[in-house]
């Protein structure tokens, strides 16, 4: 008899949050809309990135022909290039890949832990206004050009690392593998440790932003349900928020890793540039992108070197694409969680 016109009455307590499933999506009620002409007109522009990637790949393929990839020397660990005998060159791609994977791996391990802590504290524990401001601040950091980090690392951090931190780490943590190895003779501070930390600082804003977004997008009713069962904030965060946001976290890690392996300038400035498998975290090594960056000028003089750089670039491109795809797929699963929670509310 007093059935209201609109179902539900926006009770005070619940009015604070939007209910993602309450309103049927417009698509489900509105008849199929006509696509406006400008959307059609603009659609090729959306394809531009794809076209660019295809073009880049084609150009690289044509200028590189990928023959080197199938030579055993490409996959060796002992770099050798004599400009007078370019045919004897041994490109040692895995040597550089080890440096790339090592620095990116350490960076992502640190960045993930730090980002989770940052994202959780800003979304769950800190007052909303402070959390939002800090979130904005982290996003701002993501826009800083990497060369700035590189110069900062090289000018400010490197001397401190080389003269103070690394000897201290070695004497206190020397019993951990890789922490006990030889210090670099240059005491310049450059090497795996510094490069990984610079990468961490670069990647943290990106991963934090994504993890924050996925934590914030966890439907409020799920959290309330958890609290109503007597869960504390930490228990709710761990058992509900993080569980629902898991795919977002995974996506952040993959995307961060893709960024880290592709980063050249900042890493190149502090990696130390030795063509060796690093015996300790204090040692210099090189990465694929640092090699590309520093050899490109010489490559204009030596065609064989150019050839090798192109094939390095192709493999790096492929690896980055794979990680970006994994990131996409991980956040695609978030799409799958959508209906899950939708059905659940």
């Amino acid at each position: 008899m007093d059935q209201p016109v609109l179902r539900g009455e926006g009770s005070v307590g619940a009015a604070g949050h939007a209910d993602p499933v309450a309103a049927p999506t417009p698509a489900s009620i509105a008849p199929a809309r006509r696509t406006p002409w400008w959307a059609w007109a603009l659609s090729p522009i959306a394809l531009l990135p794809l076209i660019f990637i295809v073009l880049i790949a084609l150009v690289l393929l044509f200028s590189g022909d990928l023959k080197l990839l199938f030579e055993p020397g490409f996959w060796s660990f002992n770099f050798y290039f004599n400009p007078l005998a370019p045919s004897q060159a041994v490109w040692a791609f895995p040597l550089y890949l080890v440096g790339t994977a090592l620095t990116a791996g350490i960076a992502l391990a640190l960045a993930t832990a730090l980002s989770l802590a940052l994202a959780i504290s800003t979304t769950v524990y800190l007052p909303a206004w402070l959390g939002r401001s800090l979130g904005t601040l982290t996003n701002l950091l993501a826009g800083i050009p990497s060369v700035v980090y590189g110069i900062w690392g090289y000018v400010v951090l490197a001397p401190y690392f080389g003269l103070t931190l690394q000897p201290a780490l070695r004497s206190y943590l020397g019993w951990i593998p890789f922490f006990g190895g030889p210090l670099s003779e240059t005491a310049s501070g450059t090497g795996v440790l510094l490069a990984s930390l610079i990468l961490t600082i670069m990647v943290v804003p990106l991963t934090t932003a994504i993890i924050r977004d996925s934590l914030v997008s966890v439907p409020h009713p799920l959290l309330e349900a958890s609290f109503a069962l007597g869960a504390t904030r930490w228990e709710t965060t761990r058992r509900v928020r993080l569980r629902v946001a898991r795919s977002g976290v995974r996506g952040a890690v993959f995307l961060g890793f893709g960024r880290a392996i592709g980063e050249s300038v900042a890493v190149a400035m502090v990696i130390g540039g030795q063509t060796q498998i690093p015996p300790s975290i204090y040692s210099g090594t090189s990465t694929v992108s640092a090699f590309l960056l520093y050899q490109q000028d010489s490559a204009f003089i030596y065609p064989a070197l150019l050839h090798a750089l192109v094939e390095f670039a192709v493999v790096l491109l492929l690896i980055t694409l794979v990680f970006n795809y994994l990131a996409q797929r991980a956040s695609g699963e978030r799409g799958a969680v959508g209906p899950t929670s939708a059905a659940g509310i």
């Binding site: 770099f79 050798y80 290039f81 004599n82 400009p83 007078l84 005998a85 670099s184 003779e185 240059t186 310049s188 190149a268 400035m269 130390g272 540039g273 030795q274 063509t275 060796q276 210099g284 520093y294 050899q295 000028d297 010489s298 003089i301 030596y302 070197l305």
Partner: peptide, 19 residues
């Protein structure tokens, strides 16, 4: 001398670098 000469060559693994 095993590395020839040029703007980019091979170096000893124990040789640190600078930019």
């Amino acid at each position: 001398w095993p590395y020839g000469y040029g703007t980019s060559v091979t170096w000893l693994k124990s040789s640190p670098s600078a930019t």
